[in-house]
Design a protein around this nucleic acid. Structure first.
Lengths: 146, 146
DNA sequence: TCATAAAAGGACCCTGCTATCCTTTTATAA
DNA sequence: TTATAAAAGGATAGCAGGGTCCTTTTATGA
């Protein structure tokens, strides 16, 4: 459903949030290791996120990634939008270009329900809400080594 | 959500079903034109479908594609399974390899609902049920020219 | 039996997403 | 003020999915 780069982006941002709450600013190497993503590719993705101002970064010694605006919640929708556009919330499940209520494909109504409920999730959930769950131990960011 | 080739496959099969009901066996050229898909690529997909026996074909003059087993419904699930496997019904929405009820990612429960309801749709709906809708004029197979 | 219409099959190309590498810029601590 | 740690950025490789083309096989109607 989501592109791999988008999945990495979300995992990376959650990790940054968790570290920020500990007063730390992780760098690319650490982030990539912890979210189990390739290092160079993670760097590219973090670059994209900072360029679009979903994230802040500090260069030079002691630098790293962090959220400057601690107030506003960063919804998953915003991240998806930056990483791959929002086509997946509009496209027809059947592949038709002009599928809508007036000109519905045979799957239109059923698919719409699925697509819309996914949309609702990514509007509601945010980097902060996901990070909270992990902090509380209700969820995990990567495979638990056990 | 679905691969392009899977979308073409479903549209092609629906078209074949509609034509079969008229007592006709359409060929690749006609099918590709009517479902608005590239001809050579459609041929590849139809080949895959017949090889997996979701569809029958007759070579030579007067040949074409058709359903031999008129009784059994062909669910969308079967088509998806043949075209791209069923990974999309099991994969974690967050990209984690070992995400499950015991080791949930922060999106696990919400995403599961979406994924499962999509699964239900493709188990219930079939080439026949979609074709019926089009026959009754409740839905369209391609952009209505108007 | 032969010309022809049709599907089957194999080889290949192209594009976009995934991923890597190397250089440049920037900030800081010593 | 200089060595170093870190992100930014550009160029490019790898690969899978999407797509094309050409040859082979098969059936049939004339």
């Amino acid at each position: 459903m989501l592109a791999k780069s988008t999945e990495y982006a979300i995992r990376a941002l959650v990790y940054v949030q968790l570290k920020n709450w500990e007063g730390k600013r992780p760098g690319v190497v650490e982030i990539a290791r912890e979210i189990e993503a390739p290092e160079a590719f993670s760097a590219k993705i973090l670059q994209t996120l900072t360029r679009h101002q979903l994230l802040d970064s500090a260069k030079g010694r002691g630098g790293g990634f962090f959220f400057n605006d601690e107030q506003t919640e960063l919804s998953l929708y915003k991240i998806i939008h930056v990483m791959e556009g929002d086509g997946c919330f509009h496209r027809c499940g059947f592949g038709l270009k002009s599928c809508n209520n007036n000109n519905p494909c045979p799957l239109h109504d059923q698919y719409k329900v699925v697509r819309d409920s996914f949309y609702d999730i990514v509007r509601k959930e945010s980097i902060q809400s996901l990070s909270e769950k992990i902090k509380k131990g209700e969820a995990v960011l990567k495979r638990s080594i056990t």
